[in-house]
Design a protein around this nucleic acid. Structure first.
Lengths: 108, 108
DNA sequence: TTCATATTTCCATAAAAATGGAAGCATGGA
DNA sequence: TCCATGCTTCCATTTTTATGGAAATATGAA
């Protein structure tokens, strides 16, 4: 689960949370750096990690590079945790229904 | 989110996944070590991490120490990811209903 | 008591991850 | 062509995490 490692760092979780409400347009790297007060190299490092985890995508527009959240992996992560880490507990989305066994829609 | 860090390691994720289906009784440390072929010190180290993350609990029974999954934190983690990391995507458990805003039942 | 078992803590070492300055590359404007 | 801007890669350094032998602790049994 690379996604877990991807999110298991304060800076990266913060980056991802900034990107979530920004939707497909995303946010330019510079803006992200400004908001979190990160030196460019550090920012780039974490964005690369997120990218390798498949959590964000990159798109160049003029001089800026826009990053956007990629929900598919996030969805898969939640599905994985729900399926594999919650047996017999209150974690299931709906404990009454037999729970569709392998995953919901996917493809954001 | 300490739970993320807790699970973001192969060994710890494997440990937790062994504990999930074991329920409240849990599994003795020794058994866990045998199943994952871990030297005692390494095992203890990771179990301590999981415990600090609130993901597992400890209980002594005779000479053995039993570890059991603690679902509350897991539940909170899933709720957190669903609330904060999925806006406008297919991640929500049920995209039709208005989604109860702060959490489901809790207390496993 | 003494001993075996189960597990932890101690601690030195090794490996992995994060940090950020400096140099490099791409794009667009003058 | 030259320059400014926006970002990335390079890389040396620091910090954090993981590893596992050895010693220590707790429990129960002989």
């Amino acid at each position: 689960m690379a996604a877990l490692t991807g999110l298991a760092h304060d800076t990266r979780l913060a980056l991802f949370r900034l990107l979530v409400p920004a939707g497909d347009k995303g946010i330019a790297a510079g803006d992200l750096g400004a908001r979190l007060k990160l030196p460019p190299a550090t920012l780039s490092f974490h964005l690369k990690e997120l990218r390798h985890a498949g959590l964000v995508s990159q798109r160049r527009q003029g001089r800026a590079i826009y990053y956007a959240a990629d929900y598919a992996v996030m969805d898969a992560l939640i599905a994985y945790l729900t399926e594999n880490c919650c047996q017999g507990s209150a974690c299931a989305p709906d404990p009454t229904s037999p729970r569709p066994h392998k995953a919901r829609s996917r493809h954001a």
